[in-house]
Design a protein around this nucleic acid. Sequence first.
DNA 1: CGAAAGGCTCTTTTT
DNA 2: GAGCCTTTCG
Length: 739
Amino acid sequence: MDILATLNPAQREAVEAIAGPVLILAGPGSGKTRVIAHRVAYLVKLCGVNPHHIMAVTFTNKAAREMGERLGQLLGEAAEALTLGTFHAICARILRRDGKAIGLDSSFVIYDDEDQLILIKQALEELNLDPKQYAPRALHSAISAAKSRLISPEDYAQLGNSYFEEVVRRVYQRYRGLLSQGQAVDFDDLLMKAVQLFRDHPQILNKYQSRYVHILVDEFQDTNIVQYMLMKQMAGKYRNLCVVGDPDQSIYSWRFADLRNILSFEKDYPEAKVVLLAQNYRSTKTILEVASDIISANVQRKPKKLWTENEDGDSVTVIESYSAEEEAQSVVNEIEKLIGQGQVSLKDCAVMYRVNAQSRALEDTFMRYGVPYKLVGGTRFYQRREIKDIIAYLRLIHKPQDNVSLTRIINVPARGIGQRTLIQLKSRARAHDASFFEALKQASHNVIASQGCEPKARQEAQPSLPPRIARALAGFDALMANLIAQSRERSLSGLLDEILQHTRYREYILDKEDGEERWENIMELKSVASEYDELEPEEALSAFLEKVSLVSDIDELDEQANAVTLITLHKAKGLEFPIVFIVGLEEGILPYSKSFGDPEEMEEERRLCYVGITRAKKRLYLLRSYRRSLFGGSTANPPSRFLQDISPQLVSTRRLWQESLSSLVSACSQPSPLSSNTLTLKVGDHVRHSKFGRGIVMNCLPTRDDQELTVAFEEVGVKKLLASLAPLEKIEKDFDFPS
DNA sequence: CGAAAGGCTCTTTTT
DNA sequence: GAGCCTTTCG
């Protein structure tokens, strides 16, 4: 196959420019991923570069996997020798191999977000700071921001002098201490420590620089300063650094992605070749124009004109509804209409929203109408409580110094070791500069010793523990000792069984809400673990732990399943669908209210909207609703400013409610098409039920061919009924509906 | 010690 | 409306 034949001139230029730095500015739908894959293939097949010398970096595991598959097709076996992965995975590999030089134990554990938060809370506690006054999340964010810019606690001291900054510095310092005590690193450390390693050990840097002759970075607009430094270091020798990105699709500044990297690139590499991929292969002309109308209102932006040879396509539909429920319903109606016309199937459709909470109204409606959907997001597999519990056991077996894991599972399932005991352990650990686990060992051991012999002179000021507690601690110690011994003998899945059996985890979990489902998750985890059974037990354990810390999604988005996709705008980046609905185009939702005070954040909201619009291939629907209840309270929001930025001739608007009736019209304003044979009721109607007596309709939700009513009866209270089945008659209003 | 009950806050998300 | 944290009671 000719690697260049299928490329347009700009793409071809990007592929062929193999010597020196290259900046590829790739508009949405411009074939960016293809360009990267073909560039690698070109290097290997036509330029004779050994794949061992090529590194391609992505942001997500999914992107890395897809790139791997693509290159597997293009290169076959040779693709195996490429270095392909996320920034974090690549850094973890480097640090396991060479981190000793900066005092990092090669068996370090990697703490995720939740673990980090626990550590921050612990730091606050130790510093006697009130977590209500200093929100752990905010501190975490500030610390992460510092790390993403390579700022140490020491640097921080010189940086700012507000009181909050002083608090951040102190927490940061303590947090760092706690991490190193547990021989743990957080995600930011993976990057930061790699940069430090290279900075302080030129001979190690030289090893990597010599190996990686060609480096490619995808989604460059999402890199932060540390990531940029890292690439700069690695590419320091050959300068064959190719970065691909689109400033207009930068939507992760809140994760400290820094758009200035693109500017720095042209400054640090003045010889860089800049290639613009402006031809769009995805969307209709109309959709592209709408996108352009939206994005051109951003001030901090280099204008770039995208174009397409695709057809004009239909105009964009704006639907204005009364409530989020009605909005969801019009999405369903529209999807059914499109499917009825043929040519479109469920999996071609996606509904996108700003915040996850919006998915609820959509799910309800899809469920009621029996339209299959797949929700992207929600709690991720490795974040589920039961999974994290089991992993904490594994981690503690692997590394008894891991205080966070110990804290997590010392009393899970409950074994009589409560808050007070834990505080005791913590202070003992601090006093002896030991891990919690060592403190626990010692505490339980002391008591056992003092039971046999004469009570020794108590060398510590600490009070001895009550026997009941000591027994509980000794029990836990014995449990762990046994598991640690087993871990050297048994396969990984065998070890998992041991954990489950000795902790009686099954009984524990089946007692809880959704116990069955949670147990199945654990069985799923076991089946993942059994993939490591061939390895030596200790190697299997560390490989497995590495995988679960750096991989987030086990349950892939099932692309086969014929169902509508419900997804946040953020997650939709990189995807495309023939039919796209964006819901909640209201001030306060999109743009989100938090961005009102800050023009830069507002520009990011606009980019987010742009990302959503440019996912659409054939048809785009923009929806807004007059009222919306989010987080309890209900508000009336004006239409999104983004809607006003679209040229009117590109749009056709459908209004489903009238302002004058707005207090009465709700989801019922659009009766479902098949409901004519049943009694049609609306909110506020008075009814009589043969058994329950008189009542008022509080709510009515149309389903495919019925209505689901919520009725408040005078005598028996609130009931939910189906209009077709309930013996109801409509009666005259004889008392006032309290509104 | 541990279950149960009330108060508080609320983006976006990958590693 | 839900999840998390603190408080309270058995």
